[in-house]
């Protein structure tokens, strides 16, 4: 047990270091960054903001990690957020309670995920194409639900999911931490993690070993849909309205980025949900630096891109290897990696 704890820690160490650096940058541009106050029964502070604003991407990254571990990708999560938000909004507008709205949104998310899963697992369409379908169609569906307007609502129960607090902590923070912890625990305390990694590395071998690859594949897309639905509800609740055009826009890319910053390979296989969650926090911290530094908004995207690029370069195996060689400071360092030209190609089947 102790050895698994240390190996988990070693796995997420780079992400922890990067997150630390990103937070220090925040302190540089805004010295009071770490100050947290308790007012009117709610925690306030920039750090709390990072945790709170990062919730949608953090939630998305949980499902996305699992999908990517199977060597897939889910481009539809942003659109599913919009559909789920629209569903929840229209349900409360029709007079249903917030519980019904939440369950309805989750059900819709599950259906979307199952649809993706069917395309990938049964019809064997490549994940990027399969999920592109819903990515494109999803916003249209959301618009049909909201009938083209921004559907606003006043249901306090629903609003509490996005803007409320539980024991002083903003609800979204609780939601993503609880769900993330649950997911990380569930995949490692059962054999799910192993089986998902196995189909990600070699689906043919896994199937022949008796693994039910189809059901597992459908399940990961389903989980991704559920996570997206919850994220969609939070975003809608936060602005007290469902915006079919803008809710979750481009967030699928942030989610993928979070997974990548989390050190998970897009080629599938070994994964860490905790590392992806840290990746989501890193992205939000970078957003926060830009915001707090008061730079003109035109620079935002460029600076974000540069910072992300820096993070990815630091993480690249080439750089890691160079650092290793420097540290070993001698020609006799171990090189276990084959030269690039001879690296066995991953078979695509």
């Amino acid at each position: 047990m102790a050895s698994t704890t240390t190996s988990t820690f070693r796995r997420i160490l780079p992400q922890l270091v990067i997150l630390g650096c990103a937070l220090m940058l925040n302190v540089l541009v805004f010295p009071d960054f770490f100050r947290i106050e308790f007012q009117n029964g709610r925690l306030f502070g920039n750090l709390i903001d990072v945790l709170n604003r990062g919730a949608p991407v953090a939630l998305l990254s949980i499902g996305m990690t699992l999908v990517i571990a199977t060597r897939g990708i889910d481009l539809s999560v942003g659109a599913v957020m919009a559909i789920a938000g629209a569903t929840a909004a229209s349900l409360v507008v029709e007079g249903h309670g917030w519980v019904t709205a939440l369950l309805g949104a989750l059900a819709v998310g599950a259906i979307c995920g199952a649809w993706n899963g069917l395309l990938v697992a049964i019809l064997r369409i490549q994940p990027i194409v399969a999920t592109l379908v819903l990515m494109v169609a999803g916003r249209g569906i959301a618009q049909l639900i909201t009938e083209g307007t921004i559907l606003t609502f006043l249901n306090p129960g629903l609003i509490r999911l996005g803007a409320g607090t539980i024991m002083g902590v903003p609800t979204p923070i609780i939601l993503w931490i609880v769900l993330g912890a649950f997911a990380a625990f569930a995949v490692r305390r059962t054999a799910l993690g192993l089986l998902i990694e196995s189909i990600g590395v070699n689906q043919a071998s896994s199937r022949l070993a008796g693994i039910n690859a189809r059901v597992l594949l459908i399940s990961v897309y389903l989980v991704s849909g559920l996570c997206a639905a919850l994220a969609g509800v939070i975003v809608a609740a936060d602005i007290k309205g469902a915006d079919a055009n803008n809710a979750g826009l481009w967030l699928e890319l942030d989610a993928i980025l979070a997974v990548v910053i989390g050190g998970n390979s897009l080629l599938g296989g070994r994964f860490s949900i905790v590392a992806s969650l840290l990746g989501a926090l890193i992205i939000q911290s970078v957003n926060s630096v830009i915001l707090l530094s008061g730079m003109p908004p035109e620079f935002n995207l460029v600076i974000k891109a540069l910072l992300i690029l820096a993070i990815l370069v630091i993480q690249s195996p080439k750089v890691g290897h160079a650092v290793y060689m420097l540290r070993a400071a001698g020609p006799k360092a171990f090189d276990t990696r084959p030269a690039p030209a001879a690296r066995p190609q991953k078979e695509q089947s």
Partner: peptide
């Protein structure tokens, strides 16, 4: 192509079929 799951450890590869038969919840 049909046997090993290359990136997984030898340990995981050896128990893979047994684990698959037991089901993920066990």
């Amino acid at each position: 192509t049909d046997g090993i799951v290359g990136d997984l450890s030898v340990r995981d590869n050896i128990v893979l079929a047994l684990q698959a038969r037991q089901g993920w919840w066990r």
